[in-house]
Design a protein around this nucleic acid. Structure first.
Lengths: 247, 247
DNA sequence: CTATATTGTCTCAATCTGGAACAATAATAT
DNA sequence: ATATTATTGTTCCAGATTGAGACAATATAG
């Protein structure tokens, strides 16, 4: 039994993990002017789910979140935000989980720990689409990016979780924008144009913003520095490039 | 064994409750122009804690929160908000809990469920100070209002929880203010003056607001109706009374 | 009856915002 | 080479919002 199988075995039996507590992750990336999130797929079941995980007995909740993000994307030192804890009885349903396990050739006992009720802590993360290396977890087959408006129906209450994550992200935008932390950095190239930044905001907020007001407001925050070199590639005046001021 | 003792016994052994999961409540009230919160006291131990509780196996998380609020204050149909879930290892420490139990004449086994690690969901509520009938829980002796700036040192990480609740409440103020829900209603008399409302805001935010701007903004929101009758009792012009428009 | 504190209303300047205008310019079409 | 086109950087102005104060009105205390 190699290390991976061993970890799988432990995880599968729930040994060393807090019972009844899970986390679900809404991992946002930005590509082609679209907001995308990572979704796990289970072959031969047409089931889809958010990446998630469990908390070890001797592990901080937030550390568990960072670990799960690392396991799914290979990324660390990422901004994550815990946005809500989901605890409705209606949210747990053993049918899809049983289906998934059976598709993997496993016949779980009726009281298998994965089939019991879970409370789940929701986290979201904003990551660099190009740096991420999505990996499925032991029970899933693939881990893929989905555009928000082409999201499939997810298992359990995961669509609700995505919705809540998006609402929180939008509500946080203004507060975050004013803050010292340049949360937008991982979603953009190191150097970017003003219109790329604006399109990122428009995509997240789901609405158009005025060009001049946006520029005025963002530059007024003193979080960007203008670079000397310029972008080229369009049939028009070359825009300046900007980057976030390191703090 | 009467019903209360029976419930206590069950609760004390953790029977019928989700293991490892708790909730802590920051219950805000407003009195004498001060923001207060409910604190449990444990006699002969000089220990203080937030009211809290556990989730039944067949109970929605948010329903459990409403139940706990009802048990501690006698109030239902109250606006509550789940603001954060606390899951650091450092947050659990069996010493104060053991002290409390021993002060109650109980000698818990080393692996008693109350002494194990808990993840705790934080909720806050805004309640009517005058309607509340604070009641201690089975392990505590009294349940009392404390002014925020005279809060004692609380056990575990409860001071951190209060801080986070306050930050969330402040951050939510603007968003909530614009909303249709008149969250401030339970903190004020049915009819109140503009300066009472302003002082409530000032107390929560911890800063002074300009009188004319405040009046302009609040009246512009279309959530108040001015009443005919007028307040009296001060050596000055009588202010109008307002109430929230029922929706 | 006078003094006092607080209220309702108004004003004015300062600031912010929405929306448009306009010249500049890198690629493309002619 | 020159004109065309799309987009950019910048400016401007009208309208809305906000900060700060002025002032008369008035219920109670003295």
């Amino acid at each position: 039994m190699d290390e991976k199988d061993e970890r799988f075995e432990q995880n599968f039996e729930g040994v060393g993990y807090l019972p009844g507590l899970a986390m679900d992750f809404v991992i946002f990336g930005f590509d082609q002017h679209q907001l995308k999130i990572l979704i796990l797929e289970y072959q031969n079941t047409s089931l889809y789910a958010l990446p998630g995980g469990f908390v070890k007995e001797k592990e901080n909740l937030n550390d568990a979140a960072r670990r799960v993000l690392l396991e799914r994307t290979g990324l660390s030192d990422i901004y994550i935000d815990q946005f809500y804890t989901f605890g409705d009885l209606a949210r747990y349903d053993e049918v899809p989980l049983r289906t998934i396990m059976q598709a993997k050739g496993i016949s779980p006992a009726a009281d298998h720990w994965l089939l019991r009720r879970f409370i789940s802590v929701g986290y979201y993360a904003l990551i660099d689409f190009r740096k991420a290396a999505p990996r499925p977890d032991p029970l899933s087959d693939t881990c893929v990016w989905y555009t928000l408006d082409k999201l499939p129906t997810l298992m359990l209450d995961h669509n609700v979780i995505v919705q809540k994550a998006l609402e929180t992200l939008r509500a946080d935008l203004d507060r975050k924008l004013g803050g010292y932390e340049s949360w937008a950095a991982p979603l953009l190239p190191k150097a970017f144009t003003m219109s790329e930044l604006q399109k990122l905001y428009e995509t997240i907020l789901g609405q158009k913003l005025r060009r001049s007001s946006f520029q005025r407001k963002v530059l007024g925050l003193d979080i960007l520095e203008r670079l000397e070199k310029q972008y080229s590639g369009g049939a028009h005046k070359a825009p300046y490039l900007y980057q976030f001021i390191a703090r």
